[in-house]
Design a binder for these strands. Structure first.
Lengths: 130, 130
DNA sequence: CTAGGTTGTCTCTTTTTGAGACTACGTGTA
DNA sequence: TACACGTAGTCTCAAAAAGAGACAACCTAG
């Protein structure tokens, strides 16, 4: 039962022969990143400060957290607010566009959750065959 | 208007403190990869042979194509069939599970396409501010 | 006056990716 | 006969990206 084929993307592959111009690749290269997904997921419930995020996503390096947050901010998915306390604290939260991204993202997450057992099984099967 | 929060994932972040055990990260680290997305998108319309894929996704290296195909096969998303012609040709096509992945994937693609203008604008704005 | 918490940056090492030559086989062409 | 071509890959080396951890600069609490 083939699902409705990814019409937009197939057009796009033909249309944007220069990969750097393709909207989908442009966007998903950034947002498909594993840290982006985790950060956006965390910010889905509530705003976080830098250090909170670092603790929540325990295995991210400070370097990648800084960098990914800045990229997401540049793309307009999150908003960064500095509070002039001492020490200054910085709050990150989803923008409206960031919120809208939760729709496709949660579809992905649901799929992953649902099919993880099958995938793990396939991996074991594949390892046996090799 | 906050969209229904990514309930599964937030549970998961708490539940699977060991990142390598988290189903979502496990799955999306592989499938969120840019080459995986492109390959799956290509295979969405029809089966492809190795060389065809390489031509279609013109900027992928043979090395990454080989590797990504093998990983997708290991995860059970694509099926690999060798035809004993001379020279032998190999056909790759989506498995049923691979097909089911098109649903969340196309949601992502649609979102990317829709919001690309806003993102590009945000990037320019951000660059100006910096 | 020292220790700790804040948001980052800088440097070094390791991992991942890209580029491109090479394999081995058969076919068509000169 | 010999030479290039197309098939699906592998192998090696260079370049890019990511991870680890020290450091900055500031204020507060003890």
């Amino acid at each position: 039962m083939p699902v409705s084929p990814i019409a937009p993307l197939s057009q796009m592959m033909a249309e944007y022969s220069d990969p750097s111009q393709c909207p989908v690749r442009n966007v998903l290269d950034q947002l498909g990143d594993k840290w982006s997904v985790l950060i956006i997921s965390a910010l889905a419930h509530r705003p976080y400060r830098f250090g909170e995020l670092k603790r929540e996503i325990s295995d991210i390096s400070q370097r990648m957290l800084t960098q990914t947050l800045r990229d997401l901010q540049a793309d307009g998915l999150i908003e960064r607010t500095v509070f002039p306390t001492t020490p200054p604290s910085v709050e990150y939260k989803l923008s409206p566009m960031g919120h809208s991204f939760l729709v496709p993202l949660s579809a992905m997450v649901d799929w992953a959750f649902e099919h993880f057992p099958a995938i793990r099984e396939a991996r074991q099967e594949f390892a046996r065959a090799a």
